[in-house]
Design a protein around this nucleic acid. Structure first.
Length: 552
RNA sequence: GCGCCUCUAGCUCAACGGUAGAGCAGCGGGCUUUUAACCCGUUGGUUCAGGGUUCGAAACCCUGGGGGCGCACCA
């Protein structure tokens, strides 16, 4: 299944992009450009008469409004003569990739007896008089239609001429290759499957305006090959995670999105409310605490891939809702969590992009090689050329932070300031996937204390390209110590730190039943997709990123 | 929230402060092997909005809006 998806894509690329125009390479942020959004508000209203009558008042002319009127008139014309411009179904025999796979090697200028029934959207149309070439696109590929007046008949040919770019068509015909060698379907019947009332963006340049691309993702997906490629990679990566976890004996579960306490991470939650219960609720900011309850319940290996919500800033790395994978495994510690992190992401790369060799900021590396491990305190100490450790008095650590431009707040202890120093001094330099280990206890309320150093935890974060990809640790399973950690969180929250946690009594009760030694891991799937697709903005891997609402 | 950049036809982009243009799409015509087909003709604009400077503003200034990037935030 997966390998064939890759081949389809390869076939697609050669068919659709004989040349690689530079404009098409960058799906990434494109400077300049402005979309149709606010320019054409009036005519942009979906269907129906416009409030200000622009659509209806200008049936001649040739703006967007007139174009829609013209195409709608075609719909009416078809209905008037008894044809269905929006038929209910169409049974195809082959996807376009299947046609190419079966017949891609036929010689130029030859025709076959192979009958196929295919369907797709008209992307290009070349009318040479009594012969029309149209390029149609389905999910798998593009292929050329060879439509001769002599074959489809006079009436059928008129309908072909009336086709607009953007229309969906179903085609029956035989497979051939033109004199130029282009694999084609020689149509003997062309059926309209859905009339497009709105014209497609530029057939060559596609859509580049990021605003329009994200708001009208459907249009982006139609015309930008790169957008489709990215979401295929995302899909393959997530599917790969599920396969790996299934093969390793993990059970996929679903836990509540609506939480009474927003725990498991430090982040501001979205507030909501349940009417019947008259209950304030939060959208979850992490999956952690429910999944660990299931470990208490004896499920041993569980994972969830789900949406979490954080009411914080939006950036190239942050979307308010994003997809997290968290897994918990009984009887193992953080070392196994690092090992499975490497396995999951390396396999995802194989499945999604067919290689484990990745280039980030000009550096090429192989995900299959062991990922470097650096301790947080060690990295900061190395950067400063002096030892820094959470056991040091907070005044000393503050002085260091002051000298090196790391910002902190009065309530922070040495551990949290060291983290700020790490972010300030070290984070930007991490290119290849790296385990940053040994986070101070202060910033790790759910992680177990390091067996060799009581000031830090058995915790790691995965960094790559200066972005955090994941986070894992040996899970704290001592209910008494967990309560003490929660108490500290609560105290910090009451002291004014809105992102700190509260005491989750039910979770503590669960721990009191006994949680086995457990390793836990969370990985941001959006960022994995970014890494594998090689894009710089999370909006490129989220189909419908959060934006201010458009004014219609 | 702050700073910088940006917004021109359906799409992609031009226009020293001096008549708002091109390509594509559309429309009319021609063409039975095209490849972003081609050739001839042609329609289409509240230059994001509002204000100001100027004889004259798409351009300069101010305010507002959308978007992008960076910072802050994001353990």
């Amino acid at each position: 299944m997966r390998p064939s998806a890759r081949r389809e894509r390869a076939g697609f690329d050669t068919a659709a992009q004989p040349t690689d125009a530079p404009e098409r390479k960058g799906v990434g942020p494109t400077p300049g450009g402005y979309g149709l959004m606010s320019v054409s508000d009036a005519s942009d209203t979906p269907d129906a008469p416009d409030p200000d009558g622009r659509d209806g008042d200008q049936p001649t002319g040739s703006g967007l409004a007139a174009e829609k009127v013209r195409r709608q008139a075609r719909v009416d014309e078809l209905r008037a003569r008894g044809d269905q411009p929006y038929p209910y179904r169409f049974d195809r025999s082959h996807t376009l990739a299947e046609v190419r796979a079966a017949h891609g090697d036929i010689e130029a200028g030859t025709e076959t007896d192979a009958e196929v029934t295919v369907a797709g959207r008209v992307m290009l149309k070349r009318d040479t008089g009594k012969l029309v070439f149209a390029t149609i696109q389905d999910r798998s590929d593009r292929i050329q239609l060879f439509i001769s007046k002599a074959v489809v008949g006079d009436d059928g040919f008129v309908d072909v001429k009336e086709l607009d770019i953007g229309d969906w068509v179903g085609v029956h015909g035989t497979v051939m290759a033109t004199r130029a060698g282009e694999l084609s379907v020689k149509a003997d019947r062309v059926e309209l499957l859905s009339k497009a009332i709105r014209p497609l963006p530029d057939k060559w340049h596609g859509l580049t305006d990021t605003d329009t691309r994200f708001r009208q993702r459907y249009a982006d997906l139609i015309v930008n090959d790169e957008a489709r490629r990215v979401f295929e990679i995302r899909h393959e990566a997530i599917a790969s995670f599920r396969r790996t976890l299934h093969d390793e004996g993990f059970i996929e579960v679903e836990t509540p999105v609506l939480h009474v306490e927003a725990g498991g991470a430090h982040a501001r939650p979205f507030d909501t409310h349940h009417n019947a219960l008259d209950l304030p609720l939060y959208l979850r900011i992490a999956l952690e605490l429910h999944l660990k309850r299931l470990i208490v319940g004896g499920m041993e290996r569980v994972y969830e891939i789900g949406r979490v919500f954080r009411n914080e800033g939006i950036s190239t790395r942050h979307n308010p809702e994003f997809t997290m994978m968290e897994l918990y495994q009984a009887f193992v510690d953080w070392q196994e969590m690092m090992a499975i992190s490497e396995r999951l992401i390396t396999q995802a790369a194989r499945d999604a992009i067919g290689t484990t060799v990745i280039t980030v900021r000009g550096h090429e590396f192989d995900l299959a090689e062991p990922w470097p491990r650096i301790s947080m305190c060690g990295a900061v100490s190395a950067a400063l050329d002096r030892t820094v450790h959470p056991s040091q008095p907070v005044d000393d650590v503050r002085a260091i932070a002051d000298r090196h431009g790391a910002k902190y707040e009065a309530s922070w202890g040495s551990g949290r300031i060291i983290e700020a120093l790490f972010e300030e001094l070290c984070e930007a330099d991490i290119v290849r996937p790296t385990f940053v280990t040994g986070h101070p206890v202060e910033i790790s309320p759910l992680a177990r204390v390091d067996r060799d150093d009581p000031h830090v935890t058995e915790r790691f974060e995965i960094f790559c390209d200066s972005r955090e990809l994941g986070n894992g640790y040996s899970e704290l399973n001592d209910p008494v110590e967990q309560r003490a950690r929660f108490d500290e969180e609560q105290a910090a929250k009451e002291a004014g730190d809105a992102e700190r946690g509260t005491v989750d009594e039910d979770y503590l009760r669960a721990l009191e039943y006994g949680m086995p030694p457990t390793g836990g891991l969370g990985i941001g799937m959006d960022r994995v997709a970014m890494l594998l697709a090689g894009v710089d903005s999370i909006r490129e891997v989220v189909l419908f990123p959060t934006l201010r609402p458009e004014q219609f």
